[in-house]
Amino acid sequence: MNAQLQFRNLTLGYDRHPAVHHLSGEIKSGALIAVVGPNGAGKSTLFKGVVGALKPLSGEISRAGIDPHEIAYLPQAAEIDRTFPINVYDMVAMGLWRQAGIFGGIGKDAKKKIGGAIGAVGLTGFESRAIGTLSGGQLQRMLFARLLLQDARIVVLDEPFTAIDAKSTLDLLDIVRRWHGEQRTVLAALHDIDLVKANFPETLLLAREKVAWGATAEVLTPENLTRARHMCEAFDEEAAACAA
């Protein structure tokens, strides 16, 4: 298997303060990898770097020829204006942006795909509901339907199951497994260690720096988790420039 994503001495951060520090490694094409770490560990920052929303402070990310805009990305706190007058169907249909673009029509095939995606997340019957009327779980299902339509080689999910009930989590996990079965590369930031152990073969344990990276069972040991918890410290406003 070829590498789909490579990090070479990657440092990402804000205002020169690193949030992800000197990370190196590669993610194989078709990998299903969990990114675990305490709050402030740099998980979201890493994902922003992967999808090209944040430029590295140093080092680089290579994506094996994939344009960052072709990556399907579910941000942690989707800045969705839920009062906006738009229904579930139209919202999901946005997933076809790469095919349809600004002007492209939505033909019969596309309509079938949209219906299929809405069905796959269990929202059939909600098509004409305004997005403001959805519960948190339903909203997340809708966003997964949109990710499905994006049909991307790389899928990046930032805490997709936070504040989602067990039933919805299971349903959405099925979709993650389906992506894995289709040889797509899936990265997910997660806090539920048991869920990671049960579903994700590979894990990156992050605490601004890489704590451990490899097979999930070997990474998520009590010692590693304790180490990760201690490594996350606040920014030091007076920090000197990093020599490494």
Partner: peptide, 23 residues
């Protein structure tokens, strides 16, 4: 009429539009 689609998407979900396109 020309910019309707990106404009609507940018209103509801600006992050999404940024993640798929530069328009």
């Amino acid at each position: 009429a020309v910019i309707y689609r990106p404009l609507v998407i940018e209103c509801v979900d600006p992050n999404y539009l940024r993640s798929v396109s530069r328009v």
